[in-house]
Design a protein around this nucleic acid. Structure first.
Lengths: 139, 139
DNA sequence: GTAAGTGCAAATGGTTTGCAGATTC
DNA sequence: GAATCTGCAAACCATTTGCACTTAC
């Protein structure tokens, strides 16, 4: 199988992040980084199972949390009870379709955030999330 | 008790939104609109119980959903498993402290979103959510 | 060889739902 | 008086956790 993102790439990526390498983590990394994606944990699990049927759901959830902590991926809270993982970590914004659940990136020339908020003392900036919510036109 | 937001105000507000008036809804409206607040459903429930000890949690959850649908309040998805209700519906953005859970409004002169995303065909804009995430400075 | 990761299944916890009884207009 | 809302407790469901086993180096 000709994959743009090979196991060796995934291994290098994990090593660089200081994460011990395992089969499962390699498969999860490949599911995420073969192409830019916006997927829920269960969608990623399904994708991983295609390549490697012996990965448990719990491992996928735990690994996604680990990757998020290591800033390899980004968590998007588009809905309560629905976390979407974004394999692109460069700053950018999102368009979310409430009806279909679809997430799309917004390019920098479409929307820009200017200014910076006054931060209360003792806190540091973590991220700026912009989510443009749309719905299907009413029938 | 001298409340800035009396029951009569709440009743008027509910009528205007086309929502049948009940004791419970009046109390929930007062908890929300006596002052601008950012509260979770359970925090609102606790506040309502102080004034009226016979309101169930389910009613608070259902009513908050109803108010959101009627655009009387706004739901903020600051965290999975945590919806915060904002009693201010005018467009504005938010600062969220990941560690403390605190939500604060960001005024228009601090941060501004410019441009408008190209919307896919068949969809309409619902809302633009901007959440600036901060954390307490590491010790 | 040892520390760490994994799988399973059970626990978690905020939110919702079904239904009988109470309220509103 | 009819339709609706509320309370209770059980159901939900994505996510997490505990623990015995397996794996990586």
């Amino acid at each position: 199988m000709m994959n743009t993102y090979a196991s060796s790439d995934a291994i290098a990526c994990l090593r660089q992040a200081g994460i011990p390498v395992t089969h499962q983590r390699i498969e999860i990394a490949r599911a995420l980084f073969s192409a830019p994606v916006h997927l829920s944990a269960d969608q990623i699990w399904a994708k991983v199972l295609e390549a490697s049927p012996d990965v448990s759901r719990a491992t996928v959830y735990n690994t996604l949390r680990l990757f998020s902590e290591k800033k390899m991926i980004r968590e998007l809270f588009v809905d309560p009870q629905r976390v979407v993982y974004d394999s692109t970590t460069a700053p950018h914004y999102h368009l979310y379709n409430i009806d279909s659940g679809e997430v799309r990136d917004i390019s920098d020339d479409e929307l820009r955030v200017i200014g910076q908020p006054r931060l209360p003392a003792g806190v540091v900036l973590d991220a700026i999330d912009v989510i443009v919510r749309v719905r299907n036109r009413a029938v």
